[in-house]
Design a protein around this nucleic acid. Structure first.
Lengths: 176, 176
DNA sequence: TCCGCTATTGTTAGCTG
DNA sequence: CCAGCTAACAATAGCGG
């Protein structure tokens, strides 16, 4: 642990860094797990290292995402309450004689940044949607192929029983 | 701290729970911060308590979201590699004579669950989009109102200079 | 509810095999 | 690279103001 009152500083040696990361990462996850159990709280963690491929989600991608989803759903409720105050705020700006348009435009910019992120998420959604369709198409394709094969097998059986000599002649002639 | 080898168990007393949560929460955040600095890693954490209103994101909503976004972007790269193998897998199923349709349908179910979540996210997106439009509308409304006020002020000034007695009569009559 | 304290227990950096 | 060790250090549960 870092000394009392001393802020930790960036580790330069990559080997030390790896060891440190492993140990402290395990410790962090343990503490998170403790807290989850002790206080009946949902925790989701995402780890991302810019250069490295050190990517991790705790306790798992799906669970971390679920917990983030729950967080967002809860924070949306709080947001709706804030929205009412927000509207009052905008109304007061409208009523005031001094315009604070810059402020509003900054908010628009902020919202647009959020919008951009959500577009990124939606791109992901479309990708997944496509995947679903592809799998469905493959299932259908398989079903069709199987039906064709079944029918073909049936035909072959019938031919074998009904006209064995005819088939033999065909084979001997060497043409259809 | 929990004893060595002993898993922590759920706290029942709400007061103790609150104290414990506060302390350990602070500790967890400190450890996360340490790790962030020491190993140059991005960490985003989401906390959600089902019943309570104990909602938190670390280091902040925007930063946690950004870091999750980075995580997703990185994991998407890895996903694309997996996708190729995934397609091979599907192809081998198609080529095989025994259908493993159940397997595929389970995957479809899983994908549909993901799709549902993404719809939730998109609902959020639409909400934000609406918000942007509303703010734009308010800005325009303000501009119009201001123009109207300016013109009205101009008119009043002109009237004051041109026909003072007329204005006075209007005021005394108590109507426009 | 929120500090501050402290004995006890847990964590960790550096090192060894 | 990993697992085990340990002195030194940090976290914390319980208690009191």
């Amino acid at each position: 642990m870092t000394k009392m009152g001393v802020r930790p500083s960036r580790i330069v040696d990559p080997r030390k860094k790896k060891v440190l990361l492993d140990k402290r990462f395990a410790s962090l996850c343990k503490k998170a797990k403790d807290l989850t159990i002790l206080c009946d709280i949902e925790i989701g963690m995402f780890f991302f290292t810019p250069g490295d491929q050190n990517i991790f989600a705790w306790p798992s991608l799906t669970q971390a995402t679920d917990r983030m989803k729950n967080y967002l759903a809860s924070s949306d409720k709080q947001r709706q309450i804030k929205m009412v105050r927000h509207e009052d705020f905008l109304q007061s700006i409208l009523n005031a004689k001094e315009g604070k348009i810059n402020q509003l435009e900054q908010m628009v910019d902020k919202k647009e940044m959020e919008y951009n992120f959500n577009q990124l998420v939606e791109a992901r959604r479309r990708f997944d949607e496509l995947e679903v369709r592809e799998i469905r198409a493959l299932i259908n394709l398989f079903a069709v192929k199987r039906t064709q094969l079944d029918e073909r097998a049936k035909q072959l059986n019938e031919n074998e029983i009904d006209s064995n000599d005819y088939n033999n002649r065909e084979e001997n002639d060497g043409h259809l």
